[in-house]
Every structure is written in structure tokens, then in C-alpha cells.
Design a protein around this nucleic acid. Structure first.
Lengths: 157, 157
DNA sequence: CTATATTGGACTAAAATGGTCCTATATTCA
DNA sequence: TGAATATAGGACCATTTTAGTCCAATATAG
């Protein structure tokens, strides 16, 4: 169903929470209590997210996690990259080469291109948007040339 | 990874093939030979697709399958609906109600809205587009009000 | 030295996925 | 009627992915 995993969903919650606590360092326990997700799961996710560079960590007493960039500059695509690997709609589109159907296919490339458009659109959704979503999100136009880094979500208040 | 399943990918291939054979009825064996996918798998997929109404079937000698609508009117969203259930980016967005995080969440709705935009954009990609993709597909704008049935892919020659 | 944290990994149960196969039924034609 | 060809509707299984928990090691502060 073109869906993201539940862990990615949780990860988003965690990041949104950290965005609201930009100043302080939050321990995994703090986060778990705030977002109402079991501690072990939060720990696992924070480790993953930290490994991707989206958050920074500090060990020891009074240690914890915080965003390593301002929330405006963290996109939905960044989150997917961190928790699910690169956004790719088909297996073809990640392996990019050895598909035993290539000759008769002609479809792979379409899904690939759709995937690229979606990725770009997700790059335009920031952590702030995810925390306080607009009335609705714009529609992907999958038929005209993509504009690489157009601009970030335009609804910001 | 925001990906579609391999079976859905295969299903797309099959539908694109049927679109090129609009006139005749194609048996599962015909299709399997044409798209280079194992017969049992093709049979399974055709049954699923037929159940969804995208293709019509006829039994008996000289029976087979054909599209039940012109390929222009079959969208990528239709294919996903047929083979993976409704396009929904999060589990939340399908159950639409009982999420034990609802209080602290605020994120679910953002992903839900993004999902809706993506769905609409996929509705604008036809089977013809999937068969002969344009140079690139437009980018989803996830920040402005959605336009329900705007128009179908504009690159058609 | 002890408390508190993260780090990095192993581990398990449950579910989804991909794929095959079998029986029943419908249709055509000789 | 009977044989051949198709779909219909399942069951079934192996493998992978997902979600979730837990443990030993390390770093930090007091």
C-alpha cells in the first residue's frame, strides 16, 4: 500500500518531540514517556536515527539526544532515508541494472520516475510540517520535468 | 522504503501488456510468455486483478483476459488498489480512529494528508503513462489544497 | 566508585511476501 | 456426450521482513 513502516512512524513522532525540545538534551526515557512508546523501542529508534546523523547523542549522566540540525532543515525524505533506506518505489529502482525483465519491462522506469517525484515532494516537507500539518498537502505532478530543489513547504505561518 | 511489492510491479507489467492487446483475449499462458514471469504467478495475479474489476475474464477454450476499461482510464492508483489495497502511507491512516497514540500524535494526520496527495497524483498516471513513461513525472506539492480530480497526465502524445 | 546514559549487537515471535499447486467449474468443438 | 482448454478459488509452504525485547560494553558526571 505504499506504506511506511510503523517504526518509521514512531521515529517521526520522536523527531517531532525532539524538535519541540530543541534546547535541552532528552534521554531515551524522557522521549519514551513523552511519546508513549515502549522504552526499548524508543532506544532502538534513537540509536538508528543517531547513526544516520539526524540527531546527536551524548553519553553518561545527563546525556541524551537532540536534533543535530534545525527542524526546518529536516525533511520527511530524511526520515525515510534514516529508517528505511533510500526511498525507492520498486526493487528495480534501487538495484538499477540487473532486472531479468529489463528487455520486456519498460515499466520499471515509469515507477522509478514516479518514485523520484515523490522523493522530491517529500524533501519539501519539513519536520515542522509533520508536527503541525497544513490543511492539506499539494499534489505530485508526475508528468512534467522535476525541479530539483524547488523550495520547502510553503504554508509555514 | 515507500515501495510497492514485487507482485504489484509484475501486475503492472501484465496490465501494460494487456493494454497493447486491447482487441484480443489473452490467456494466462500468453501473458506469461510475453512478460517473462512464471505461469503460476501470472495466473494468481490475473485472478486478483480480475477480482478487482480492472480486467474481464472469459472461461473455456479460447478464453482469457482483457482490460475492462480503456487503458487511459486505468490509473496507477487503481493498480495499487487492486493489488495492495488502498494506498495509505501509515497504518493509522487506514484504521482511522483507534490509535493509542492519538493524544500525543499529531503526526498521523500529516502522513495521512501526504498520503492523500500521493494518491491523487497516482490517479493522474495512466496505464499508458506506465507503458511509455514521460521524461519525468511532476512533483507532488504537499502544501497546498488538493484539487480532487484535476486532470490526467499531460504528456500524452 | 557509582549512577546514568548511550552503543552495538543478538535474539525471538509474528506477520507479510513470493511462489507453487490442486480441485472445481465453465466453454468450445468434434 | 466427451475431450480439451481456460479461469475460479482455494490451500499450502519457504523465506524474508517487521516489531519488539534484552544484554554486555562503554562513556560521563559527581
Amino acid at each position: 500500500m505504499l506504506r511506511i513502516s510503523r517504526l518509521t512512524d514512531y521515529g517521526t513522532l520522536i523527531l517531532v518531540y525532539l524538535a519541540s525540545r530543541q534546547d535541552r538534551l532528552c534521554s531515551a526515557s524522557d522521549v519514551a514517556a513523552a511519546v508513549h512508546i515502549a522504552l526499548p523501542t524508543v532506544q532502538k529508534l534513537l540509536k538508528l536515527i543517531a547513526a544516520s546523523g539526524l540527531v546527536q547523542s551524548e553519553r553518561g549522566t545527563d546525556g541524551g539526544y537532540c536534533l543535530s540540525r534545525p527542524p526546518e532543515s529536516i525533511s520527511a525524505a530524511d526520515i525515510l532515508d534514516a529508517l528505511e533506506g533510500p526511498v525507492a518505489i520498486t526493487e528495480c529502482s534501487i538495484e538499477d541494472g540487473h532486472c531479468h525483465l529489463e528487455a520486456s519491462c519498460g515499466v520499471g522506469s515509469a515507477w522509478q520516475k514516479i518514485s523520484k517525484s515523490m522523493r522530491i515532494s517529500l524533501e519539501n516537507v519539513s519536520l515542522i510540517d509533520l508536527g503541525s500539518p497544513p490543511a492539506s498537502f499539494p499534489v505530485i505532478d508526475v508528468t512534467t520535468p522535476v525541479q530539483p530543489g524547488s523550495q520547502t513547504a510553503a504554508h509555514r505561518s
